[in-house]
Amino acid sequence: MKAFNAGDAAGAASVYDPDGYFMPNGRNPVKGRSGIEAYFKEDMADGVQTAQIITEEVNGGGDWAFERGSYHLDGTKGRESGAYLQIWKKVDGVWLIHNDCFNVIKNAC
């Protein structure tokens, strides 16, 4: 989130598998790192200024793991809060997010 909070969409997307999926609430899935970067740029242009994730569970084995938690996005429209689930995959010895989805619980006003 450091990269996202610094306005660096490419840096924020760099932790995603190049063949990964990002499944935003209420929108079509986005495939690939470049698509995820474009989504982050759109979020930033729409006024999202900071993101905070709160990891509540991590588990897995071998080359796969999952992370579940909650998040807050703060920006010009207020605060959005929700829950997320990420599936991590070890690719060439590096852990990357392979699938990422979230559910909005409270929309920004």
Score class of each variant (00 low, 15 high):
V15Y: 08
V15P: 09
Y16W: 05
D17C: 01
D19H: 10
D19P: 04
D19K: 12
G20S: 06
G20F: 13
F22S: 01
F22W: 06
F22L: 11
M23I: 15
P24A: 00
P24E: 03
P24C: 01
N25E: 14
G26H: 06
G26S: 04
N28L: 11
N28G: 11
P29S: 07
V30A: 06
K31Q: 12
R33K: 07
G35T: 02
I36R: 09
A38D: 07
F40P: 03
K41L: 14
E42N: 05
M44P: 03
D46S: 10
D46W: 13
G47K: 03
V48W: 06
V48I: 14
A51Y: 15
A51G: 15
Q52I: 15
I53A: 14
I53S: 08
I53G: 09
T55M: 08
E57A: 12
E57S: 06
E57G: 03
N59H: 11
N59L: 11
G60Y: 09
G62C: 07
G62F: 04
D63G: 09
D63F: 10
W64M: 15
W64Q: 11
W64T: 11
A65E: 01
F66V: 13
F66N: 13
F66P: 01
F66L: 14
G69M: 00
G69W: 03
G69I: 03
S70K: 15
S70F: 05
Y71H: 06
H72R: 13
L73A: 05
D74E: 13
G75E: 00
G75H: 04
T76N: 10
T76G: 09
T76S: 15
G78P: 04
G78L: 08
G78I: 03
R79W: 04
R79Q: 09
E80S: 08
E80W: 01
S81H: 14
A83Y: 07
A83D: 14
A83R: 12
L85R: 01
L85I: 01
Q86I: 06
Q86D: 09
W88N: 00
W88E: 08
K89F: 11
K90D: 02
K90Q: 06
K90R: 07
V91A: 09
D92G: 12
G93V: 12
V94E: 15
V94F: 06
V94L: 11
W95Y: 04
L96P: 08
I97S: 09
I97P: 11
I97Q: 04
I97D: 04
H98N: 09
H98S: 13
D100R: 02
D100Y: 02
F102R: 01
